[in-house]
Design a protein around this nucleic acid. Structure first.
Lengths: 255, 255
DNA sequence: CGTAATGTTGACATCACTCAAATAGGGTGG
DNA sequence: CCACCCTATTTGAGTGATGTCAACATTACG
């Protein structure tokens, strides 16, 4: 049922062409992504009335249970999306950055199913869903961007599931760092020093492991000189050896 | 950071109202869902040219790496969606049933990122994405249905992540069965006897555990008379005690 | 400067994986 | 219809990865 590794490799060659995001040396898609953000922000501004709001760490952008009316775009800053279950479990299902849309989860049932909470100072643009649809009717390019954003979110969520299901804990942390750097690179933000905006508990929750495991893994990566902690605080770090970090993921990936 | 259970419970009361799907005795949303399927199938048929195709277990509906051109709707049958990573891991990211859309993952990069493979005899409707958008321009209701479907998929993927990250293995299997029954109920299909169309390996991959763990858990549930295996074969089963099955999930859920 | 929140590290327990063997079922060809 | 093979499934035994608990260190913040 599940193919031999070589066979799978044959079938995944295309990934290097289509999704060079994870493959250094092919920055085309990164530039395309960066342009898409600019394009989105421009087009949204010109096509629909929007409300700008300055948010700070801890501010609620929307909340599970609220009636769905608006979509949101993070024009700058960083936010987390937390899903709640009926029996009280909570799960960080994603982190959002500059240019990301938020609130798609609410469309289906006209009610948000997650909390969106700012983790840093930033600006949120809020657009009425109906107004946005009206804008899309006039500017088809806007609709395409909207669909691309939703599609991207679906693909990303699946990548998360893949990571949690197929990688052991330490490799998931390494993969998380790689994705973080990639996210920054795609947005044209600095990648030489990265600042994790969230606690170990939030990372652990997102990756499906105990916060202690996150801490231990980061310590190990630092001990092996794959990452460096930058002076004070343990939230600022530098990827000293990206190759080794990738190796860390792959070593455990297939087995 | 993470609230006390009682506090979370307070905030999740709305779930019983908004999403009664998981709560027996409130079938409204199920009926709504069932109607949405009919509505979708009708509207799609009348709004855009579509191609019907009969598929059998094992047939490929679309494949990772293919250029994205079409969306698909499963009008009957059952399919699995398998995501592939660059380093050869593969992950079952979802199962699709009557009325489900497939192919959203391809919109963002104009290239599919998953395989979609039929697991049963059924019919697939294929619609050109551009033709569909043209249809949406004429029938705004179709666009709303499309967005609802994408939104639903995002919400579902997040539920999967929540399950994998917050529930121990046995509870995930129980939760999987509950979701399966709920999926059938929402579609108006029979729930007294359910037939798992996939192997233990596929269930285990989807739920992030070894196939042996799936098998052991099902055996345990049968031993405790929470489920029954229906005569020959171990793929046909009956939920003997839905309450106990829910209890099985909740018992381990919060801890 | 003191307190609470966050992060680190160690010791230990345990859940779930791996390996292995046996059984059952389904399909195929004689 | 039966014998056979091949895949799927079950079950057991042992191990290892990761969670839990606990103590301590560090940082952030009022």
């Amino acid at each position: 049922m599940f193919n031999a590794i070589e066979e799978v490799r044959d079938r995944t060659h295309w990934l290097s062409d289509v999704d060079p995001l994870r493959h250094p040396g092919a920055p085309d898609a990164r530039i395309a992504f960066s342009q898409r953000i600019v394009q989105t922000l421009d087009l949204v501004q010109s096509s629909a009335a929007l409300q700008r709001r300055l948010v700070h760490a801890g501010d609620t952008i929307y909340q599970a249970g609220q009636a769905f009316e608006n979509l949101h775009i993070l024009s700058t800053g960083c936010a987390k999306i937390v899903s709640l279950s009926a029996d009280g479990r909570e799960q960080v299902v994603g982190f959002k950055f500059k240019g990301d849309w938020m609130g798609f989860d609410g469309i289906a049932d006209a009610c948000h199913r997650c909390d969106a909470i700012a983790m840093d100072t930033g600006e949120v643009w809020t657009i009425g869903y109906d107004a946005l649809l009206a804008g899309c009717a006039k500017a088809p390019a806007l609709l395409k961007l909207l669909h691309a954003a939703m599609s991207h979110e679906i693909a990303h969520d699946r990548d998360s599931l893949m990571s949690v299901c197929t990688l052991p804990a330490e490799a998931r942390v390494a993969d998380f760092l790689l994705q973080w750097v990639e996210s920054m690179a795609k947005r044209g933000l600095r990648t030489d020093a990265i600042t994790l905006k969230m606690t170990r508990a939030e990372i652990g929750n997102y990756l499906g492991m105990a916060l202690e495991t996150v801490s231990r893994t980061l310590s190990r990566l630092a001990r092996e000189n794959i990452i460096d902690f930058v002076e004070k605080g343990r939230r600022d770090l530098r990827i000293a050896d990206p190759q080794a970090l990738q190796g860390f993921v792959r070593r455990y990936g297939v087995v």
